[in-house]
Amino acid sequence: MNSVRLWYKKSGLAVYTSHLDMNRCFTRAVRRAGIPLWYTEGFNPHPYLTFLLPLPLGTAGEREPLDIRTVEDISADEIKKRLNAVLPEGLEIVDVTEARDKANEIVSAAYEITACFESGEEAEKFAGAVTGIIGTGALEAEKRSKRGIKTVNLCEFILSFKAKADGNAAVIHTALLTGTQQNLNAGLLEETLEKAAEMSPETLTIVRKEIYKENNELFA
């Protein structure tokens, strides 16, 4: 049995695929690629396939980790080649490595939020408004957790935040607490900002760029 960490990129139409559906989708892709997966033992065996940091519906990812276990020794290049030949549009393996860091070491992630408006002025206005809002240090929203819904200050989850206009788009670069301990969904942040700024963009893309451990070290 070999543990392998796949790093995939999720973009385009695949962004509308929920986490549960991603699981099914990758299981099938691995089967199509003829990569023999290791199956759990027991009454209802299923292939071992774990998303370390599931992406919320609507968020794209540049380099997302996914662990699989194979029964045969297959080279990283071969796995990448075979999977990319069979993955649907919008999903792509960008790297295959050994599984070094553990999922619970993840503390934060960097996001890029692009909100497009009808005019450059609106984009400017939005970028200005959200910078001001975050600057106050207070942005309340209802947040769902395992223990139910409660109101929290989203700013407590924000490590860095920069917004600027670029043509008709307002582009936000932000690092948010992410992982099993404390987690803020970038989609929730954007939605709350829209409400607070009382503006609604024409189109919106949210991309998770990088994932970090303590001290801003890249998760690997």
Binding site: L13, Y16, S18, L57, L87, P88, E89
Partner: peptide, 11 residues
């Protein structure tokens, strides 16, 4: 609900 119903682009 379930935007994947409306996007196409499936394998």
């Amino acid at each position: 609900q379930k935007p994947g119903r409306y996007t196409g682009g499936e394998l």
